[in-house]
Each structure stands twice: as structure tokens, then as C-alpha cells.
Design a protein around this nucleic acid. Structure first.
Lengths: 192, 192
DNA sequence: ATAATATGACTGATGAGTCAGTCAGAGAAG
DNA sequence: CTTCTCTGACTGACTCATCAGTCATATTAT
């Protein structure tokens, strides 16, 4: 790895850490460079601005989530299994990247542009879920017809699970996966 | 109403509006006073600091939500009805106070002190729900024993419903209440 | 020796909070 | 009734600390 790649990496690692702890506004560029062990000027060799590095982190999550979903785009196993597997994989990614996950969930709501990225990503998930649920309704496996509302239950649950069980309580991944699976099964029982 | 009460009221109204649009950090005291039609100095006759007025708004929500829950503390109708009524009442309050609701849901995550108020409030709701659900489990009405997980589903859903159906889509209160009732019934079917 | 990296003191803008001063109107004094 | 004084509410130009971003210079690697 070249020197410059190393330095940029250090800056990104420090930025993730500090943005996730203190949020965008309370994080000073001077905090990031101090943590990374480089000078203020060095930061600007790698990033145009504080805004830019922040956006880069946010896009990293968005892109990864979209990638995961795309893998499932042509899965045609049974509906509930697909959903459980997908949610489990997203959970795992967020679990392994708690810092940027925290940024994504909590720190995007003051900048219009970042909110758009957030909602765009959410929409992508919603569309996938909607498609899946609609198949279930068509097949008659799912009796409750308000697809939007089902998605509200599922997505609301997913977010909350990550917030409380992972971020607040710090439960291990396997346990949270198991809980999530149960939760989804319960929801499916409810709409059957 | 005295002159000074009027002025303080104007400042609070403007603060709600602007904080909810732009968040804490992007809102300048100069924005608030401009909107309220008073001078910068006047602001500091009524509030010690920008932090203070923000916190005042946040506490307003917390206190109101706690009040609502307390009303239900000794209700002993059937479990699902109590839950639906409570959630409906909280929904209605947030609906009527969208601006501070937006602040409460999205703007508290950069200041440690404010996050504590957020989690404290959430805890209050959780405790109430937990108590209710536990009764259901004891009675045998609810078969699924992981009370925490049930609460994850219910609370996650509540938040999400408000975010998408009220704040994003702007649906009328009655419709959202109806949707929420259906959602809760589905969850109950799932855990029965 | 030359290019690639890094440095950190500096600058300029910004915005929270201050404070000396204005002013309308309510009584009191003549 | 009119002049004087007092007071509560308000004003806005100013101060001062804070930071994002710059740049002339230094160091390191090839």
C-alpha cells in the first residue's frame, strides 16, 4: 500500500470514529487530524472539505446496502426465507461497521443533501421488500393487503432492533440475528 | 397576555419552526430573531442561550408524552385496546405538534444531554408497554415470550409510521390512526 | 535532484453572546 | 393638564473565540 493510501486510510478511520461519536457539527477537522496523527494541511491533500469526507462515508454505506440488495434481486426461494436472509445480511454489514451505521442512522438529518441519500437508500430497500410482499399477496400466502403498512412494520422493526440490541445493548451478532429471525416470523404470522 | 409573554411566545414559535427545518447547528439565533421580528438582544432577555431554548422545546415533548402515558397507568381494559388507545393518543399529540416531533425524532443525536432525554422518554414508553405485554404473557393471551422483542416490533413500527405516513406522505390523522390500529392488530395476531 | 508528501502557522468568516443606549407609556409632582 | 421621572421592554452594533481552509516551507522517498 502506498504512503498516500495509508494516510488517506488513517484519515477515514479517524473520521468514522469521531463523526460517529460526536456527529458532523461537533467534529472539528482538527479532531480528525489529531486522531489520525497528521497535520491539518494533510487533510486537504486528500479531501476537498469536511463536507466531502462525510459524504464519502455516507455513500460507502449506501453503496454497500444497495449491493447487498442487488444480490437478492433474482432470488426466488420462498418469500419469508429471502426476507430473513436479506435482513440478516444487512444486519451483519451494519454490525461490522457500527461507526458508519451510527452516522447513517443518526447524523444525516441536518443536511438536505445527505437526507436525500438516506431516503434514496431506504427507498431501495422498500422497493425490494414491496416487490417481495406483493408476490406473497398475489400467491395468497399473505392475507393482509396493505403492503405499505407491512413494510412499515418490517423496516421499523429492523431499524429499532439494530438501535437497541446492537448499539445500545451490544448483543453479539448471532444472538441479534436469531432475534431478528423470530421477529420476522412473528410479523409473517400476523399477516398470514 | 402581557407584552413579554407575547414576545417569548413569538420566539418559541419561530424556534420550533426553524429548528425543525434546519436542525440545531444550522439554525442561527439571528434566524430565529429575524423570523420572530425582534432584535438579537431580545432573545437573551428570555433565554440564557441557544442551547437553553432548544432544550426547552425537547422537554416540552418529553413531559407531554409522559403525561399521556401516566393517564393510562391504571387502565385495566383489555391489553390490545389499551395499547391501541395509548399509541393513538401519542400519535395524535405528535401529529398536532409536527415541528417539535421532528426535532425530537431527528435532532437530538449530537448532544449527549439531549440524547439522554430522548432515551429517558423512550424508556418510559418501553416500561409501560413491557408491563402490559407481560400481563398478556402471564394471562396466556400472548404466546411469544420474548417481551423485549415484541416491544422492538411495536415501538419500531410506531416511529416508522409517524415518519413515513405523517411526516413524509402527510396523510390525515384519522387515516394514520386507522393504519396504526391495523398494524397493532397484526402484531398481536403474530404473537398470539 | 526531483517528485511526492507532509507540515503548522496563518487568515478570514462566522456567529453566539454582550451592553450601552433608546423609547413608549405609567405614574407622581407641581 | 403638563412636566418630570421611572421602568420594563427592546435594540443592534460590537466583541471575541472558534474553525474551515490555505500556503509557503520542510521532509522523505525514489
Amino acid at each position: 500500500m502506498s504512503q498516500s493510501e495509508k494516510t488517506k486510510g488513517k484519515l477515514i478511520r479517524s473520521a468514522k470514529k469521531i463523526f460517529s461519536e460526536k456527529g458532523f457539527w461537533d467534529t472539528k477537522v482538527s479532531d480528525i487530524v489529531k486522531d489520525a496523527g497528521v497535520a491539518q494541511g494533510t487533510f486537504y491533500l486528500y479531501f476537498k472539505s469536511k463536507d466531502e469526507i462525510f459524504k464519502e462515508l455516507v455513500l460507502e454505506i449506501r453503496n454497500h446496502i444497495i449491493e447487498i440488495i442487488d444480490k437478492y434481486k433474482n432470488a426466488d426461494e420462498n418469500i419469508i426465507k429471502t426476507l430473513i436472509d436479506l435482513k440478516s445480511e444487512i444486519l451483519e454489514y451494519l454490525y461490522q461497521n457500527k461507526e458508519i451505521a451510527r452516522i447513517f442512522l443518526f447524523q444525516l438529518f441536518t443536511k438536505e443533501e445527505l437526507m436525500q441519500i438516506y431516503f434514496e437508500t431506504l427507498n431501495y430497500i422498500e422497493d425490494f421488500d414491496k416487490n417481495l410482499i406483493q408476490k406473497g399477496v398475489a400467491k395468497g400466502v399473505i392475507k393482509y393487503p396493505d403492503v405499505e403498512n407491512i413494510i412499515n412494520i418490517i423496516l421499523g422493526y429492523g431499524r429499532r432492533l439494530f438501535e437497541t440490541e446492537v448499539l445500545l445493548k451490544g448483543k453479539p451478532l448471532d444472538e441479534v440475528k436469531k432475534i431478528q429471525k423470530e421477529g420476522i416470523q412473528i410479523i409473517f404470522k400476523g399477516i398470514s
